[in-house]
Design a protein around this nucleic acid. Structure first.
Length: 776
RNA sequence: GGACUCGUAGCUCAGUGGUAGAGCGCUUCGUUGACAUCGAAGAGGCCAGAGGUUCGAUACCUCUCGAGUCCACCA
């Protein structure tokens, strides 16, 4: 054996051994209890970052541990199409070529992104293998696999049938830069100092941060209890504005805080969520949303001479004109204000009225809360069980429409009457944009366009459509006929992700079988492994993903998708700072493993980590764990050398006058202590105390087994055999954490074993060996 | 404004109802039969503060102070 353990000499070879042995596929042994973890699918388009390394490590530890405990383990890997994230990256690439998404019809664009993702797909998989992930790659599933898509569509169809889907006009969180709406969860809030403008408004003065939206005002509101304005309630007032005189109704609503500003609020239902709510409460009294900002982020026609100006510029000019006309009375320049921005590009989110599909969450939430209360799911991670509950109790309906092409297109169909038809259809006013045969962009209402184009041509070049809120539609997983236009919106990525545990287990049917099992054996994956055992992920997607998986899992299958949620913390740099590109403190896991080995990184990530708590990891930590791998190697080397040398010694010679009985007494104590260690580690792993288990095994191995026991063996106090047995136990205990070095050392022991010869074709592997008996 | 978490050795973090732990860093020794990616010895902590429960609290409860994260429609 080499004096030092060199990870690069072993890792690849060992991984191949594991893979060839079929150890990654669930055991078909009779009576083996199933154990299943569905891997959080990494973005198919991204290389791994340190967070991925963390989840690979934690999940691999659990899987390897349970596999050694004799469970039939399935760790099901996959990749995520990552909707907006991927399209965003792709559009950047297009931009470099001087192109944009507007140059292509949606089908071509989709195909281009598909091809682009295919090029990169597999990168993450290879990297996870380098980290030692013992996942069943034969069951690998992509979120846009045909059968996955089919099931997702089916779920939506069911939801619709059960009355849990509705289409309605709401103010959506629209990013005018990304060109799509987002769910509330995807809006980031930042504090800003924004000028608060006080302006004359008929007989009132009111305060606003958005004077440019005043063209969309449909009412003025005051608090019903405010004595200052009581006389005006229900009356119409004359207002002089930048576009001339107009009349405006005064309404009373509790939403108005008499203490803030002047106690008078202009109501702009098209551009402020609160105002929209006010309108809903006063539908009979006042006009509805009047949109004055377009989806392009510019002021639109109702803004008169200001139309065409981008919002920010528009505000400046409106303020200037207000001032010129003496309508501006005061400006509070120090006003602190929370602004919603796009989580991707930081563009201010524009609340805009858009008909969207929503899922009613109330019934789903009830079931989920119930399952939590009945302890059908346990959450590990600093207080996040409470967070989950809090969220569920306050959840709003889920907007699942996204205006991007890279995703699962909604199975929603609008019937279009042919131009010859005499029947007037309200769907004729669906607004479409498409590329005609000459690749020119054509936009307009479909009823009108049908005079010049066939429906087939429109369909072929379709970019997007926008159907009015009262459009007729049907939901169907398959095309209902030729005279239909399919909705161009796609599902929120999380809508399909929410169904991942059930869908992956059902989708692995019919795939190429792994080495040790037939396709038929895979057929009942769902039967066998659902509900799964553990969902392991970072706490930052608890709400986006875990919560929704619970809701949709319960809806689809009637039972929770997993029994345990283990949330790991974020990895920070050695100074405890978040990793970010701008700080330049990002650790690339593959850089680290190429220097120190995968085992070292794994152990550094996980040792002394706590569920739900962030952890800082620096190069020093990794180096220390690299040293551990070397320590393991050398302990094995010493014990092997001992065994070689004693073979040549005459058995009768008793060294140094130490008697057999003394040795066996010491051995007894050694074995007692050893079984205590086994017991402790087993308990810790059973209770998901992973960081603690890693620490225990580290300390016991290094500071007890090496520092004490090996030294006592040198003084002839502990027998060689005891030491060898102890080493094997420790290799097993450490294997889930540092699989490569432990397997490498174990193979060295095998080779030294004369019985090994006949096993050459099927070597004993540590990965498939049983976990040590507690009473060892 | 609401929720959650944290405050333990110089730094980064574990931990436990009953003499305080690890890694890194530091000091002094040490190349005799695994490992200098090592070993031995050591310095360094009123476990944020104040109350309470308890025979006993760093740990459980309450409050205070300090740090952080997430959420939030006051124009």
């Amino acid at each position: 054996m080499e004096k030092r353990y060199t990870h690069s000499d072993h890792e690849e070879r060992i991984y191949a051994l594991w893979e060839q042995s079929g150890a990654f596929a669930p055991s078909q042994k009779k009576g083996a209890k199933p154990y299943c973890i569905i891997m959080p699918p990494p973005n198919a388009n991204d290389p791994l970052h340190i967070g991925h390394a963390m989840f690979v490590t934690v999940e691999d530890i659990l899987i390897r541990y349970q596999r050694m405990r004799g469970r039939a383990c399935l760790w099901l890997p996959g990749a995520d199409h990552a909707g907006i994230e991927t399209q965003f990256v792709f559009e950047k690439k297009l931009k470099k070529q001087g192109k944009s998404r507007m140059d292509y019809d949606r089908e071509s664009l989709f195909r281009m992104i598909w091809d682009y993702v295919q090029e990169n797909k597999g990168v993450a998989t290879e990297q996870m293998k380098k980290l030692g992930a013992s996942a069943d790659w034969s069951r690998f599933t992509f979120t846009l696999d045909e059968n996955v898509v089919r099931m997702v569509l089916d779920t939506f169809f069911q939801l619709h049938r059960d009355g849990l889907v509705y289409r309605d006009l709401r103010l959506v969180n629209f990013c005018t830069h990304c060109g799509t709406a987002f769910s509330d969860l995807e809006v980031k809030h930042v504090e800003q100092i924004t000028p608060l403008y006080y302006m004359k408004y008929g007989p009132f003065t009111l305060a606003t941060v958005r004077p440019e939206t005043k063209f969309g005002d449909t009412a003025v509101a005051v608090n019903p209890k405010d004595p200052r304005y009581k006389q005006w309630i229900g009356k119409e007032v004359e207002v002089k504005g930048l576009l001339g005189q107009f009349r405006m109704r005064v309404i009373a609503d509790d939403y108005v805080d008499p203490e803030f500003g002047t106690g008078v609020v202009k109501i702009t239902p098209a551009h402020d969520p609160n105002d929209f709510e006010v309108w809903l409460r006063h539908r009979d009294e006042i006009p509805g949303p009047k949109q004055v900002i377009g989806f392009d982020g510019k002021l639109s026609t109702p803004a008169g001479k200001y139309a065409g100006l981008p919002v920010k510029k528009g505000r400046e000019i409106v303020v200037r004109d207000l001032q010129a006309q003496g309508l501006l009375t005061k400006v509070d320049e120090q006003y602190r204000h929370i602004l919603g921005v796009c989580y991707r590009c930081r563009t201010p989110i524009e609340p805009l009225p858009l008909p969207q599909f929503f899922i009613k969450v109330e019934p789903l939430v009830q079931k989920t809360l119930q399952s939590l209360q009945q302890k059908q799911v346990t959450v590990f991670g600093a207080g996040y069980g409470k967070t989950l509950k809090h969220w569920l109790e306050n959840l709003k309906d889920w907007n699942v429409s996204r205006q991007i092409v890279w995703g699962i297109r909604m199975p929603v169909w609008y019937k279009i009457q042919s131009q010859k038809s005499k029947v007037k259809s309200q769907n004729n006013n669906i607004f479409v944009s498409f590329l005609n045969r000459k690749k020119n962009l054509v936009t307009g209402e479909v009823g009108t366009l049908l005079n010049d184009y066939t429906l087939t041509e429109i369909k072929g070049g379709l970019q997007s459509l926008r159907a009015p809120v009262d459009a007729d539609y049907i939901v169907s997983p398959t095309p209902p006929g030729d005279h239909y236009l399919q909705e161009t919106d796609t599902f929120d990525t999380w809508f399909s992700s929410a169904q991942w545990p059930a869908v992956t287990l059902q989708a692995s049917r019919g795939k190429t079988a792994g080495k040790t099992e037939s396709t038929r054996e895979k057929q009942d994956d769902f039967q066998r492994f659902y509900p799964t055992d553990v969902m392991e992920t970072a706490y930052d997607i608890l709400i986006f993903w875990v919560m929704r998986m619970l809701m949709m899992g319960l809806y689809r299958t009637g039972s929770v998708p997993f029994r345990t949620v283990y949330l790991h913390g974020l990895i920070r740099d050695e100074q405890g700072r978040k990793m970010s590109k701008s700080l330049g403190n990002i650790i690339n896991p593959l850089d680290v493993t190429s220097i120190y080995g995968a085992d070292a990184l794994r152990m550094a990530l996980v040792i002394r980590s706590t569920a739900g708590q962030d952890k800082s990891v620096g190069e020093g930590d990794v180096r220390a764990m690299r040293n551990l791998t070397n320590k393991i190697w050398n302990a094995a080397r010493f014990i092997l050398m001992k065994r070689e040398s004693t073979k040549h010694e005459a058995r009768s010679t008793k060294p140094n006058g130490t008697s057999h009985s003394q040795i066996s007494k010491a051995d007894d104590r050694f074995f007692q202590q050893l079984s205590k260690v086994v017991d402790t580690v087993t308990n810790q792993l059973d209770h998901f105390r992973i960081g603690l288990a890693a620490e225990t095994v580290y300390n016991e191995f290094w500071h007890w087994f090496c520092d004490e026991c090996i030294e006592r063996n040198k003084k002839q106090e502990i027998s060689n055999n005891a030491l060898l047995q102890g080493l094997i136990v420790f290799l097993k205990l450490m294997h889930p954490f540092v699989p490569f070095i432990t397997e490498a050392a174990y193979q060295q022991l095998q080779e030294a074993n004369p019985k090994k010869k006949r096993k050459e074709l099927h070597p004993d592997l540590l990965i498939s060996s049983p976990w040590p008996d507690r009473s060892a």
